[in-house]
């Protein structure tokens, strides 16, 4: 790894300041503002980690809900036996292991198989948990803690910062370089000596772990956990939409998608609660036909135009 340039230090300190400002939200915003903040922080962590994997590999993962749900259950079951702080790492490891298994089974195959496999995963785990609850006679689980909304917010914000840091480190590493090559041409990557399957599996463990930790952090907010809540398939789709809307080409891309989409989603759910699916569908179509590279693509294009315009003056 090469040394940091002064520009890197500048960017790092800018990020630190932005984070510090974001961390003050619980004191400046009301209860509603804070809940929006939680949603944004949650989807930022999810969508950024999703984009770390799907951006370079072009595999569309719909497994976020499965990992998230597993994380929720780690807290739900674990809180009765273990101190809270041990649960987040456990959830992370569980998510990463699950992702590695999924990766081993599917990442050798074409993208369509991967999509179907991940789409089915959340439903599969949900049915298994529901079934085992039916057998053991339990229904849902109560998660009663003293953890408040603001603590959840800070944890998610920390997690998002961690994801950015990780993404930045991966981008500077051999693994990151390997992934860019894989994204450009997988055959060239293999014949250059890159173990493409290993690289993809390693990277897929990141969104797996992050989604599971996110689920574990949010479990106390739900108070009562049941399978249909923890494994809601909608979550997976929202993550995909937000990441693609922002753009996966840059580390900050998903954030640019998360913020407007969260507000739009809130507005639609309040005034037309039945039309959220329609909104999701329209967003997918908008991305494919109008914003193939997301907002990041638009911003890059605008920058390019401005630069070339200056050149002509």
């Amino acid at each position: 790894m090469s040394a940091l340039s002064s520009r890197d230090w500048g960017n790092l300190s800018l990020c630190a300041i932005a984070l510090a400002i974001a961390a003050c939200l619980p004191w400046t915003a009301g209860a509603y503002g804070l809940s929006i903040g939680v949603t944004i922080a949650m989807y930022t962590a999810l969508a950024t980690s999703w984009a770390l994997f799907s951006g370079p590999t072009h595999y569309i993962s719909l497994a976020s809900a499965a990992f998230f749900g597993v994380g929720t259950y780690v807290t739900g079951i674990g809180i009765q036996y273990l101190p809270y702080w041990t649960l987040l790492p456990i959830a992370g490891v569980a998510g990463a292991v699950m992702a590695a298994l999924v990766g081993l089974a599917t990442l050798r195959l074409s993208g369509v198989y991967f999509v179907i496999f991940t789409l089915g995963l959340a439903e599969f785990v949900r049915q298994i948990i529901t079934w085992s609850q039916n057998i053991s006679g339990t229904k849902g689980i109560y998660v009663l803690t003293s953890i408040g909304e603001m603590h959840i917010y800070w944890q998610l914000l920390g997690l998002a910062a961690l994801v950015w840091l990780l993404g930045w480190l991966i981008g500077r590493s051999r693994l990151g370089f390997a992934l860019r090559i894989i994204g450009d041409d997988e055959a060239v990557a293999r014949h250059s000596g890159i173990d493409t399957a290993r690289a993809k599996i390693l990277l897929f463990m990141v969104p797996g772990a992050v989604a599971a930790i996110t689920g574990a952090v949010l479990a106390p907010r739900y108070v009562y956990i049941e399978p249909s809540l923890a494994f809601s398939p909608m979550l997976s789709f929202q993550v995909v939409i937000m990441a693609l809307l922002g753009g996966t080409g840059r580390l900050w891309g998903p954030l640019v998608g998360v913020i407007p989409f969260t507000f739009l989603w809130e507005a639609i759910s309040v005034s037309f609660p039945n039309q959220t699916t329609l909104l999701l569908g329209v967003c997918f179509l908008v991305i494919v036909y109008l914003l193939p590279k997301g907002f990041v693509g638009l911003i890059d294009l605008a920058n390019k135009r401005m630069r070339s315009a200056e050149g002509y003056v």
Binding site: I181, D184, S192, G193
Partner: peptide, 27 residues
């Protein structure tokens, strides 16, 4: 010919240097 379209000439060649038989990194 198969090159890596999103990268510069130097990065294309670096792909060989980083992952080939003898592996180098950084400068």
């Amino acid at each position: 010919v198969r090159l890596l379209p999103s990268m510069t000439v130097l990065q294309n060649v670096k792909a060989g240097a980083v992952f080939g038989h003898r592996r180098h990194w950084g400068h």
